[in-house]
Simulated assay, not measured.
Amino acid sequence: MARKLVAVFASGSGSNFEAVVSAVAGDAASPYEVSLLVCDKPGAAAIARAERLGVPVYAVRPKSYPSREAYEADVVRELRARGIDFVVLAGYMRLITATLLDAYPNRILNIHPSLLPAFPGLHAVEQALEYGAKAAGVTVHFVDGGMDSGAIIAQEALAVRDDDTPETLYPRIQAIEHRLYPAVVRAFAEDRVRLDGRRVTVEGGLGL
């Protein structure tokens, strides 16, 4: 099986970007290779991670374009020029438009720090704590035109402690993210992820 070329989109620190890259570092048999970081914030820490990891960066400011669609059309041109097979969103803080969705149908993945459909959008960990949820977790899902509304590929839950704060809960959620996301990306690159309506199955499981 040919190795799939992946573009990771990030807006912030890039910890999940690094997890996805590092999971296959030095693995000659890896089914995927992260060959591009797309960043919409040229000052983001993710860029420094990419430089350290040897991953090329395409950093552009969306406000430099007349519309979201024009920005994404430029990004799509870059993705196609580099032969990108699928896209992984990792802390990318922008809603995706049809321009990118149509270019990569059912080939865009995202990770979210809650058990969707609970607590979509920003500040999901804070939302869960404010609501008094007894469980939190991580969801990896396909991207559609909505807010964290695509079909769910994988989820993992953890208990919320009575004394949890965002500062204590989020590191435990991140630990799950850094393990779960690379496993899903690997399964997707190996063509083991099956989408049927909103139902998703992973042939052979994730091995976690």
Results as ranks from 00 to 15, higher is better:
P66K: 08
P66H: 08
S67Y: 10
R68F: 04
E69K: 13
E69L: 10
Y71E: 01
E72F: 08
A73N: 14
D74S: 14
R77K: 14
E78T: 07
E78K: 07
E78N: 08
R80G: 01
R80M: 03
A81M: 10
G83R: 14
G83P: 12
D85K: 08
D85Y: 05
V88P: 02
L89V: 02
A90M: 06
A90V: 08
M93R: 10
R94W: 11
I96W: 04
T97H: 12
L100P: 05
L101C: 04
D102E: 15
P105C: 02
I108C: 03
L109A: 11
N110Q: 05
S114K: 06
S114N: 08
L115N: 09
L116H: 07
P117K: 05
A118E: 13
P120I: 05
A124R: 03
V125H: 05
V125Q: 05
V125N: 04
V125Y: 01
E130C: 04
Y131L: 05
G132E: 09
K134P: 00
A135W: 15
G137C: 07
G137K: 03
V138T: 06
H141K: 11
H141D: 06
H141Y: 10
G145L: 11
G146S: 09
M147P: 12
D148V: 00
S149R: 05
G150W: 08
A151C: 09
I153Y: 03
A154I: 09
A154V: 09
A154T: 09
E156D: 14
A157L: 12
L158A: 09
A159Q: 08
A159V: 06
A159F: 02
A159H: 04
D162H: 13
D162V: 03
